[in-house]
Simulated scan of single mutants.
Amino acid sequence: MTAMLEGKVVVVTGAGGGIGREIALLAARQGARVVVNDIGASLSGEGLDAGPAQAVVNEIRGFGGEAVANTDSVSEAASAQRIVGAAMDHFGRIDGVVNNAGILRDRIFHKMSEPEWDAVIKVHLYGAYYISRAAATHMKEQGSGAFVHMTSTSGLIGNFGQANYSAAKLGIAALSKSIALDMQRFNVRSNCIAPFAWSRMTGSVPADTPEEKARLARFQQMTPDKVAPLAVTLLGDQADTSGQIFAVRNNEIVLMSQPRPVRSVHQSDGWTPERVLEHALPALRASYHPLDRSGDVFCWDPV
């Protein structure tokens, strides 16, 4: 049987460890030539180390795969061009992008600083845009390609102390849908995955209460390698799928909803603030969404 990504060239950002590493390894085992991108920084984006990316490259080469390391940052347009350029320079094409690179700078909203906001938005949202935009021209010209973006239920549903991260991750879901719509005519697909997996990033989330500790204990059961099969499948031509949002929790793959009208009210002669208060809001209230967060919605134990 032909490997699913035979002959394809894939860029995986943030691939020096965790989910990105597992995707890069599996993509290579499925025949892809891989650009392993990672700046080797801390979760806050500090410190640079070429070691993590090169270590993954060495693993891939160790089982006979082809890969090159890249340590450019996704957070600037010029360096994102160099990441995509590494694929073109070494392998002559680019068929897939996995936008996985990320950092955390968690802070309760009223204490969040502008640098904390900017840093997370730049890496996650701008990074996904810069890399995707750099690759899109090549994919358009060759008439094929696939994007897989890592979103999060922190953005899709909500979470405490992550306004920067949540805003970026929900923005990525909208970016993916726009790419899917705009690039469909060129046979280019775009999908999102909200991964549940124990990694360096989730390991940094505070766990002060018994409930938070129990939630993190559940996270520890969900290893990064569980996310890789879906990501690699979505990169392959056999997956005729675009514009979708999935979640992966251990051995479970979930198709996530996307915002659609829930309920409406109509006033033939228009609304006044008083009528909105007296009629519209009470009529809609039964369909309001609660102030829940990811852990409230995904409340069952992963299997």
Rank of each mutant, 00 (worst) to 15 (best):
T241D: 00
V68Y: 00
Q81K: 12
S294H: 08
A135Y: 00
N58Q: 11
P115Y: 04
S154R: 01
T137C: 01
S268Y: 09
P115I: 05
G51K: 08
L255M: 09
R61S: 05
V254R: 03
A197H: 05
G236H: 04
Q184G: 13
W300L: 11
T151R: 06
G62W: 02
P290N: 13
Y165C: 08
E114R: 13
P195N: 02
V35A: 05
L170F: 08
G243T: 02
M4I: 09
T137S: 15
H110T: 14
P282A: 02
K177N: 14
A3K: 13
P261G: 06
S152M: 03
Y165R: 04
E211L: 08
V276K: 03
D301P: 09
S132M: 07
E114W: 15
V12P: 10
K226H: 14
R33C: 05
S199P: 12
D208I: 05
F219T: 11
I83K: 03
M4E: 10
A87G: 03
V36P: 02
G236I: 03
P261A: 05
V36W: 02
Q81A: 13
W300T: 13
P224C: 09
T71G: 02
C192I: 11
S154E: 06
L43F: 06
V68T: 05
V9Q: 01
F63E: 08
V123M: 11
G143K: 00
G295S: 12
P52T: 06
R260P: 00
W117S: 11
V57Y: 04
L25C: 05
Q244S: 12
N250W: 06
Q54F: 00
I19R: 01
I121G: 07
T202C: 08
D269Y: 07
A135G: 01
I121M: 12
H289C: 14
K213N: 09
P282E: 09
A180Q: 09
P224L: 02
K111N: 14
A286H: 07
A50G: 12
R189T: 10
S144C: 13
F63V: 10
I121R: 10
A128S: 15
V227Q: 03
K111S: 12
V10C: 04
L281Y: 10
R185K: 15
T151V: 13
D296G: 15
L235T: 06
S264E: 14
E22V: 01
I19L: 09
M201Q: 07
K177G: 10
S178I: 06
A207L: 06
R93D: 07
M139P: 08
I23Y: 03
G145M: 14
A207K: 15
L230M: 11
D225K: 04
A231S: 08
R93M: 06
V227A: 03
V262M: 12
G145C: 12
